[in-house]
Nucleic acid binder design. Structure first.
Lengths: 343, 343
DNA sequence: TTGCGGCGAGTGAGCGCTCACGGCTTCGCC
DNA sequence: GGCGAAGCCGTGAGCGCTCACTCGCCGCAA
């Protein structure tokens, strides 16, 4: 113990240092730090002063070791470059912070179940207390469902998985609203540019579209499939241009709608005079497309926040699963839709 | 110590359990886990088998406590909903994982220096070994510079701060390229829709634009200032329409360019025939604007990756600071620009 | 006076790991 | 055949904290 001779050490101060300075025991310091009762005000003040003087920071690893709580939540996401996931992450982080948690992120490279298990394991090895998975593909969601994990997991996505707690958007409803709106305007039917087949959002939006057409007795055209990107929307547009009698198109997201608008524009097809276009998401740019895009708004940030609340609820009440929370999207009308042509 | 009687415990297995099962000491288990030399192959195999059988996971908190290394890096970002920050975060996460680190994120609510200090402190309290700050505003960068922190910090941004290690994009260069290209096409001068005044990218792009005009002896018009959003680009567009003799506009990002295009379109001003427009960033959608946008491409993912490499380098070699890394952007030509009108 | 409950502290153990050591075995070499 | 070196493995301490105790003191009722 010859370290005393070295004077003011470089070493970070620990609880014992604070205790010595304040003239109390380390336990009292701990009590002050954790807001425990039965500490006299002046004692507390002395401790706090000592903490400030030494610029003492509790060591989170030591605390985590003994309490078995890391105050950390994990997020696994698929492509956090997309607007949706990025916004959800943002919402999650906000909610986590206000609930007193840190958030640790990791992203998936591939979509197989192993990759999901790997990511969750990685997070778990780090000691996270719970995980929210933003990976709305059939493969990943079913992987989450059969995840062998000791930590609570909530998914954000879609679909009707009931095995895993989840928060999602009413995609079927939103798609139905969009499709119904177009039908109401007199369009004989509505074409659809869908997202990737293995995404749940994609499936649900397609289903909402299809069901609405069927309920209205409208013909159900073949689906054009994209990958969410503007590029794929453009390519779908090229195919749609070839088709006869297309007067209305519902795109599964705004980016693809942008690509579609581009293709239509190049082909000299006026929107909305000849063809009406509706998107999904309401990204901030949608109002500035040419023409401004009618779309279905969903609040990604809220989605993330709700997912986190759900996780924290599960964590702190140790209740098994509050089931499934849904957020209702809303149709936003802009200039990209109009009544069906009379010809 | 009556726990033995309970048989197979619910309790997570610890190193001692593995050691007992493998018939070795806990230290040998530790050696196997950490790849230490001097362990006989068959001993190693026995240990590995025991680990698998018990599904043993090392406790990261315990390890962090003694090694004083958390294997965690922090990221503080400002608005991770924007395409740029989101992509950087993605790049950072990838690079961190392949370097063997976890990533913990937190975002800033406000822009004052206190907020930055707070965020970094928060991360530090969690035990991160280093921090990368994605918050490219004058206020935050100078806050980073005078950060009182014991952990290494690297910033990703712009500007010529030398006090803090940084990786940035050649914004001045990119803006110069864009402006120069327009001048080369015969435009008398180039107008500018700038980003927020307190963002470094904004300042640098504006400076690159201004310098290029001055070098060419072209008049320097008043700057229209936006906030990166398409909405603000639209509003800038409304103002620009009022001006006489505008034939070329350089926007500080693609989103504002989109808004500008919208405003021009509504006013019946043809792009590029009457007015040429150039953006900055090359977001994936830029190629599908109406018309497709000429812009300056920067690789955000690479930016993030480089920032993380820099941080890890600093961490592992304990060298003070490799200074400043710059990434060169590239002009991408599309249909939104054309030669100056002859009239 | 004695007893007793609760407030305000302190003491010691132990969380699960790594690090510094120390001891035993096996080999190479003169 | 003996001796040093290296390979292989075990022992104990301790990282910085919290949790379960214990202890002294004061006030109040018996």
């Amino acid at each position: 113990m010859g370290t005393e001779s070295a004077g003011t050490e470089q070493r970070q101060p620990v609880m014992a240092d604070v205790a010595k300075l304040a003239g109390v025991s380390h336990q009292t310091v701990s009590r002050v730090l954790n807001g425990a009762p039965h500490v006299r005000p002046d004692t507390r003040d002395r401790v706090l002063a000592a903490i400030r003087e030494l610029d003492y920071r509790p060591n989170s690893a030591a605390r985590a070791l003994v309490t078995r709580r890391s105050q950390t939540l994990g997020v696994v996401s698929f492509d956090s470059t997309l607007y949706g996931p990025a916004s959800m992450l943002d919402g999650i982080e906000q909610a986590a912070r206000s609930a007193g948690y840190f958030v640790s992120v990791t992203s998936l490279r591939s979509l197989d179940g192993r990759s999901v298990q790997e990511a969750v394991d990685r997070l778990r090895d780090q000691g996270v207390e719970g995980v929210v998975v933003i990976a709305p593909q059939t493969s990943t969601v079913s992987a989450v469902a059969r995840l062998s994990s000791s930590v609570p997991v909530v998914a954000v996505g879609s679909g009707n998985q009931t095995q895993v707690p989840m928060v999602s958007v009413g995609n079927r409803f939103g798609a139905g609203e969009a499709t119904g709106h177009l039908l109401d305007l007199g369009h004989r039917t509505v074409h659809h540019v869908a997202g990737p087949a293995n995404w749940l959002e994609s499936q649900d939006r397609e289903e909402g579209w299809r069901l609405t057409l069927q309920a209205a007795g409208a013909p159900v055209p073949e689906v054009q499939r994209g990958d969410w990107s503007a590029r794929s929307g453009y390519q779908a547009g090229l195919r749609i241009i070839e088709l006869r009698d297309v007067t209305a198109v519902f795109c599964a997201n705004d980016h693809m709608a942008l690509g579609l608008l581009r293709a239509l524009h190049e082909a000299g097809r006026a929107v909305p005079d000849e063809i009406s276009v509706v998107g999904f998401d309401d990204i901030p740019e949608a109002a500035y497309f040419t023409p401004p895009l009618t779309t279905v708004r969903q609040d990604f940030g809220e989605l993330g926040r709700r997912a986190l609340e759900m996780l924290v609820g599960e964590l702190e009440s140790s209740a098994p699963s509050p089931g499934h929370v849904q957020i209702t999207p809303e149709l936003v009308l802009r200039r990209s839709v109009g009544p069906a042509m009379r010809r």
